[in-house]
Each structure stands twice: as structure tokens, then as C-alpha cells.
Design a protein around this nucleic acid. Sequence first.
DNA 1: GTCTATAAGATGATAGAC
DNA 2: GTCTATCATCTTATAGAC
Lengths: 234, 234
Amino acid sequence: MAENRTASAPKPARRGRPPKARANGETRDSILDAAEDLFSKHGFYGVTIREVAREAGVDTALVHYYFGAKRDLFDAVFIRRAEVWNNERVEAINRYAAEAGDAMTLEGLFDAFLRPPFQWSLKGGPGWKHYSALVAQTNANPTFGGETMARYYDPAIRRLIELIKQIMPEAREVDLYWAYHMLSGALTLTLAETGRLDRLSNGLCRSGDLETAQAYMTRFAAAGFRAACAAPEA
Amino acid sequence: MAENRTASAPKPARRGRPPKARANGETRDSILDAAEDLFSKHGFYGVTIREVAREAGVDTALVHYYFGAKRDLFDAVFIRRAEVWNNERVEAINRYAAEAGDAMTLEGLFDAFLRPPFQWSLKGGPGWKHYSALVAQTNANPTFGGETMARYYDPAIRRLIELIKQIMPEAREVDLYWAYHMLSGALTLTLAETGRLDRLSNGLCRSGDLETAQAYMTRFAAAGFRAACAAPEA
DNA sequence: GTCTATAAGATGATAGAC
DNA sequence: GTCTATCATCTTATAGAC
């Protein structure tokens, strides 16, 4: 309503900050990083576009400009690192299978399979930790978790199970899938680093000690798979 | 603005439904049930008080009347069944320990420990399934999951670990805590019944087949605990 | 205890200037 | 590509009648 500028001014003065000069793709990535961080902490509905924009240091409208609707932004975050995870895991287990040949063990296979996500969480910077937490919550989500995880992660898991079959040719498929399900729960909970274990153990264990966690998980899962595939005692 | 009632009317007619006549505590429980259902599907921020009220068949204001702020409603939902779960689990493992004595096995102990949550999910009605899904998401939540799970569930877990120590007196505590952490991830993911396993296995396994799941989990975890506590190979 | 009504503010999304 | 400004709607929560 109030018109403070002179009526003759041909061009109203810009208010606010001048447009940022950013390298190509930098703005897009900074929005993805901010969204990844916030979604991983508060979930899809716990984050507003405004918060994402503020953390990314951009304007709200830019988020819509780059990604459209909020849900599309979430999907873009989820997909971005899924390919990296999976390509590296499949490559790692294939390499292990080729090197070990008939000497393949469950321990060796799981070590190869688990290393990429653990290493990214350990050394990939905060974005990878946020992503891990996001995957953990998605895996446990009863509404869209099953569908989302299956869509992006099943091909890599199927390859893992093929190789397990080579190690345990006598195993029934149904046993292997159930056993993998147990491993999946342990893996995503571990990568979420919730701090629950720290409290439970009175500080004896640290959620963030992922090297230790990976070693335990490899042994735990290998033994668990063997037991799941063994004939149950009558 | 528009005044349709006659100016002389001493008592404006009630609009909307007349107050419901409910038994004592019934309204409160129906609000908790509705909130439990919705929170388990969409998370804390994904649910509005209005939706809870609508699903419970009561007015929005009543939700505040009974529970105060939204967060208090969430806590009330979370606490309601935690005690049942935990009391029954502790009772079950204590009973098993008393009966089995020196013949205690990890399989027997885990069978006793896992039975209550699985049985409630199977036969306790939809509310228990919703609650299980809620626990799964809380366990994986990096913001308040660690603190919340520790607060309500750690005492029962500590008793479980005490009894495991009787079975494996040589085990190091740190090994037992990490091993339990693996079991925790498998357990809560399984109880969430996300349907992911159904897709991964092309229908060979069903997330809802909790009897099968419990049997696998018992064997998987028992073997996993033994492996986690064994000296790692150099 | 249950309702109506509303305060007070936040939200996703878009139009349009530059 | 980046911003300002705004719409239409929805949100939690409360006041107060009955």
C-alpha cells in the first residue's frame, strides 16, 4: 500500500541481497545437501521448503525452480547416492568372487559388500552420514519404505544372494531372503547412528565406531546366515 | 456477518452433532488408537491433530483437552504399550531362566524374549501392529530415537543381557552389546512389516508371516551372538 | 466433556520483475 | 537463474458456550 519510491522512478530499487554468483550446478547441489540433512533428521513432513532454502542459502522459489514439488525434491535426494552405494557394492562383491573363486566365504563376501556404505559414512563427509540416516528411516517406513527400498536397492541385493548361493549351494532361497532381511535391519540401524547403543551400554560401545560395527556385523551375519539355512532342530 | 437467527432468540440453536455419549475412558482410548495408527504410518510431523480427531470421531478441541500439546499425545501413544511389551518380555525370560536352569540356551532365551512382541503383533489386533511400526521408526530415528528407545526399553534389554552372560560367562560385555544391537535392528525392521522382503523375494517370503520370522530370528541371532563373542580370526 | 468459533501463524506453491 | 510478493490453504492451540 505505502509507496515510498518516487513516482517517476523508472526502475524500482532491488530490495534484499543481490543474486548469488554460483558455479553451474552448485546451487542445485547445495539445495540437495540441505534437503538431505534436514530430511534425514526430521523426515519428509518434518521439513519445510523454507528451511531447506534457508540452510542452502537460497530463496524458497529456487527450490521449486530446480526440483518442482516437495516430493520430487525428496526423491532426488534419495536417488543421488543410491547409485554410488550400489555400483560400488556390486563391483566389490564381483571382484571378491573373481579373486577368491572356490575359496569364497560368507565372511569375505560380507566384508566386501558392507565396506562401501561403511567407508562412505566414515570418510565421505557429513552428506553421506545424513544419507545413511535417511535410508535407515526409509527402510523402517511402513508406508513407502518397502516400495522405495525395493526399487533402488533390490538389484544389488539379488546379486549378493546369487553369490551366497555359490558359497552355500544347498541353501534354500527362502532361507537366504529371510536371512538377508535380518542383515538389512542390522545394517540400516547401524548406519543411522542413533546413539541408542551408547546409552544401553553405558558408553562401552559407541554408535559412531563404524569400523568396529562392520567387523561385528560381518561375523554376526555370516554365522546368522549359516544358522538360518541349517535345518531347524525338531 | 449474516445473522440468520431471530434477534429475540435467547439461546442460539446448537449446530453440528450432539455430544457423543461414551463410556469413561473410551474417548481417550479412541484418540490414542487413531493417533497410534496415523503416527505409525506418517510419522509425527506427517499427522495433524485434525486427522487424529477425525479418525477418532471426536472434535479437534477434545484432543487438546485430553492430551495437551501434540508432542504429549505422541508420548502418550508411545508409552501406552511399552510397559506391556517389556513386562511380558522380562517375565518370560525370567520364567525361562528359572525353568531351564543350567540348561539355558541362547535359542531358548531368545524364543522367550521375542515371543511377546511377535504374539501381540499377530494376535493383539491392529493397534499392536501400528505400535510395532511406530517403534521401528523410532528406533531408526537419528534425532530422538536413541534417547526414546533407551528410556523406555533399556531396562528389559539389560535383564536379557544379564541372562545371556549366565549362558556365555566368558563373553565380553562389549561383544554382547554390539550383538544385541544387530538383533535390535532385525527385530524392529521385521515388526514394521514394510513389505520390502516380499518384493525382494518375488513373493517367496511374506513380511506378515511373523511366525516364520520369529523362528528365523531366534536361530539367526543365537548364532550371531556366538560368532560376535568368539575371538575374531587374526 | 463436548462443542463452536477463531486467533495467530506457518505452509506449499506460483506469478512476475529483473 | 534469482529474487520479491503473495495466494489460498492449512496448522496448533485456545476461549468460551453449553
